[in-house]
């Protein structure tokens, strides 16, 4: 790996963080009842699968897991020039009266989360939305905070935090790029 990157979490570190987040979600919600996990494409969607598997190991019950693509809800759609490719939103169950746990890899400005919440509301009316993120790197531009955080990482705006996945979409590392 190049000199200007630092590994913040390795594979087992990510696994421990996701296991703890899974326990916290179950504790806060007193079990799996009415819980649905929705990951934000693409990193968050992979992590939602991991958390879903982890919760199944703990509770012996599978919660519904979906994925939301927020491209069509972005607030910076103009500033990009060519429009970004649109990913697939895949929510095959009703969100009505569900306790939705939104999952993302890195929480930064909060604008992605705003877009994802708008997208979820168009799919139905969940009874609540909670937010789980693997990394919170600060620099919020909207009044949004996470309920479950893997690791808080103070960063400068010049840096970039990325979660790397292998070809099976399993998280393998979190790196800080300077």
């Amino acid at each position: 790996m190049a000199d200007n990157t630092t590994v913040l979490l390795d594979e087992s570190g990510i696994k421990r963080a996701l296991t703890r987040i899974s326990h916290e979600i179950l504790e806060r919600n007193k079990g799996v009842r009415d819980i649905a996990l929705i990951g934000i494409r693409s990193g968050g969607a992979h992590l939602a699968e991991e958390i879903g598997n982890c919760m199944e190991v703990i509770e012996g019950e599978r919660v519904p897991v979906g994925a939301v693509d927020i491209t069509l809800y972005r607030d910076d759609i103009k500033s990009h020039g060519a429009h970004l490719p649109v990913g697939k939103t895949d929510i095959s169950f009703s969100l009505e009266a569900k306790r939705v746990v939104l999952v993302d890899d890195v929480l930064f400005t909060g604008r992605t989360i705003r877009a994802a919440m708008d997208a979820l509301m168009d799919h139905g009316r969940p009874s609540s939305i909670q937010l789980a993120v693997l990394i919170d790197r600060g620099h919020r531009e909207l009044p949004i905070r996470a309920d479950f955080v893997g690791r808080n990482v103070p960063t400068s705006l010049k840096e970039n935090v990325a979660v790397m996945f292998d070809e099976k979409n399993k998280p393998i590392a979190v790196v800080l790029e300077k």
Binding site: P85, K88, D90, D122
Partner: peptide
Amino acid sequence: TAENMREINSRDIKKVPT
């Protein structure tokens, strides 16, 4: 893009703010 847009057409609220 069209393949992924289809999901919108099967929702209750068939609208995105794009």
